[in-house]
């Protein structure tokens, strides 16, 4: 059991180190919404089907990351957002659009807007203080409720486990190049909750075991 645990810890450390190395060299693979991107907007008077524009965008932009979204509320304007977009590609999109909808949109009337990336720091910054605050409160809670157990182990586990779990998640995301975005943040918060629940489970079991032992051997008041 002890050997298994050591192997597990070593693997976790290696993954985290590898993750940090990948992050340092390449950064995260951020979702297009958070990456630098180019955007054009096309509109007409009659209405535009999103599926038509998605098809046109796929034909012109190919494997480049992109998405198409409706703009405004009248169903006659769309925005095409892409990781890369040249003037030539823009012209091709407009030509195909004109062909599809029998329009005469001029290429010179449509500009390619460059939107810079959103820093990952800006995205996760609002999580830091509430996360730290909850960790402190829960640490105090654990230390009070499970005071009969080894308080040093409780403190170390409560602080280290969530931190290691988050580092592990982000390392895996960096190594496997899972897009860092809105879902990643949601998973990160969910993971934090799960770890705390697991810790509560572990401590509660240890306390139950301690209480049982105390009942069976009332003279032996030993701590874990």
């Amino acid at each position: 059991m002890r050997t298994k645990n050591i192997i597990l810890y070593v693997i976790i450390c290696l993954i985290i180190i590898a993750g940090i190395a990948v992050w340092d060299s390449k950064g995260f693979n951020t979702e297009l919404q958070y990456s630098s991107r180019y955007q054009i907007q096309i509109s007409n008077k009659t209405g535009i089907e999103l599926s038509d524009m998605e098809q046109i965008a796929s034909e012109v932009l190919g494997n480049t990351r992109h998405f198409v979204q409706k703009v405004e509320l009248f169903g006659n304007a769309v925005s095409i957002v892409s990781e890369q977009m040249s003037e030539e590609q823009k012209n091709q999109i407009i030509d195909k659009f004109n062909e599809k909808y029998d329009e005469d949109v001029k290429s010179e009337n449509i500009n390619i807007l460059y939107i810079p990336f959103t820093r990952v720091k800006d995205v996760i910054e609002p999580f830091i203080i509430p996360g730290a605050l909850t960790l402190i409160i829960i640490l105090i809670y654990f230390l009070i409720v499970y005071r009969k157990l080894n308080w040093i182990k409780i403190m170390v586990k409560t602080i280290v486990y969530p931190v290691i779990a988050e580092l592990l998640l982000y390392s895996i995301m960096a190594i496997v190049r899972i897009p860092f975005g809105r879902l990643a943040i949601a998973l990160s918060i969910g993971l934090y909750l799960i770890i705390i629940l697991i810790l509560a489970n572990i401590f509660e079991k240890q306390r139950s075991k301690y209480v049982e032992e105390l009942k069976n051997n009332p003279d032996d008041r030993k701590e874990d």
Binding site: T134, I137, I138, V145, L193, I196, L199, A200, N201, E204
Partner: peptide, 14 residues
């Protein structure tokens, strides 16, 4: 119930 208390703490703070 005791195990869910930390979850409640987190949920209230958040």
């Amino acid at each position: 119930a005791i195990k869910t208390i930390p979850m409640l703490i987190i949920s209230v703070v958040f």
